[in-house]
Nucleic acid binder design. Structure first.
Lengths: 215, 215
DNA sequence: TAGATTGTTAATCGATTAACAATC
DNA sequence: TAGATTGTTAATCGATTAACAATC
């Protein structure tokens, strides 16, 4: 189990993709797969797949390959999907509502415990049986409820304020949709979803050929 | 202008962040900045900043640093933000609506020209003055309107069908929010936003210490 | 001019790929 | 046993950092 002490971010970011493809294999009743076959489906090299998996243990068997069910379960465990997580969403606007309504997260074990906003028009409405609360009640709420993951869906200018409240209350993981970088202590993990950065890289690539003169 | 023929993805993904930070500097009326100062704000090394910028040209001046306005304009140009882009969204569910309502994209020059869905309950409703159309009309619409970027916000199972329609109609850039990998020809650019992958890396990191035994 | 800071080359670090002995 | 495929080491490739001459 204690294989390597530090897994690189490059490997970590590939893990969910392994889990997704293995899940698909399971659904198609495929019971075993070699790194070569998986390579052809998932688009990583066979060598990389073996390297990645060996960060966490010896899941394969020479001459046979990997047992799909076993590997799927192992990776799910590695990803921390054998437990549940409590979450709150701050910001009940478009993105906040979209995230709240994304039922897949619930299936994966992420339980939404509260939604907060400061807009009086939104306070009181119900999203998936959860009433939007005034953000002024957030600190109190976090004191009374153990929350694992704080989700920030407020505008850029208010994101740091919310992050500070999260940190103060002891939350150790923040999923940030605000287009800004948060300042948090070292032991707090931030995962950013910066939609405009994603869109801008798309527009860059769409123009790339032109930039350098259509070769 | 024709500096290097191929810019690495690592560099490209940093460009929007440069643009964002330079925009903030502009708003704070800062007119010049050295790679060292920018490094302290943005969190890249000064060396990396100079390397990155030099992929595209000599924007700085020895002994002085960079002119903020000039650099901001250059990077905006590099990102392709000096023109506008026409877009369509397929899928008027939660994410589709969130993306449609994200006014920032409009400001950056991304014009939403149409929204499509196959759910009769959604067809006909208006989102930001745009009536949701039946997805059966998509091919026709794309023939009559020049669209630069197709945005996929449909469930996983329907994403490839939409991608195929996009490709057939000549769209060269796809922004994909469906949790699946799309098959498209080489000359079509796909930018994925995989929310669950993002969330799973967060849960991985939240458990990391425990995985390897709390050292 | 002297100080500052770039642009750029060289050195280092890390990640990916290739190769192959071990072994099922 | 023979064939297949892993786990793992070594080689390569690419990205980041360091160093410094050029120059504003």
């Amino acid at each position: 189990m204690n294989k390597k002490t530090m897994i690189s971010m490059a490997v970590i970011r590939r893990l969910p993709k392994y889990q997704r493809y293995l899940g698909e294999l399971l659904n198609n009743d495929i019971t075993r797969i070699s790194s070569k076959e998986l390579s052809e489906r998932i688009g990583f090299t066979a060598s990389q797949i073996r390297q990645d998996l060996n960060c966490f243990g010896d899941f394969g068997q020479q001459g046979y390959g990997y047992n799909v069910r076993e590997l799927y379960d192992e990776i799910s465990k590695i990803l921390g999907l054998t437990r549940t997580y409590t979450t709150v969403i701050i910001g009940a606007g478009n993105i906040g509502q979209a995230v709240a309504n994304y039922s897949k997260f619930e299936k994966l074990g992420f339980e939404l415990k509260g939604i907060f906003d400061k807009n009086p028009k939104l306070i009181g409405i119900k999203i998936r049986d959860i009433e939007v609360k005034d953000v002024d009640e957030l600190s109190d709420f976090l004191e009374r409820n153990k929350i694992d993951i704080g989700i920030i869906c407020v505008p850029r200018t208010q994101a740091q304020v919310i992050a500070d409240i999260f940190v103060k209350s002891g939350i150790k993981a923040i999923w940030n949709f605000a287009p800004t970088d948060l300042n948090v202590p070292e032991d707090v993990i931030v995962e950013n979803v910066h939609l405009s950065e994603s869109l801008l890289t798309l527009s860059y690539r769409l123009n790339e050929a032109k930039l350098f003169g259509e070769e």
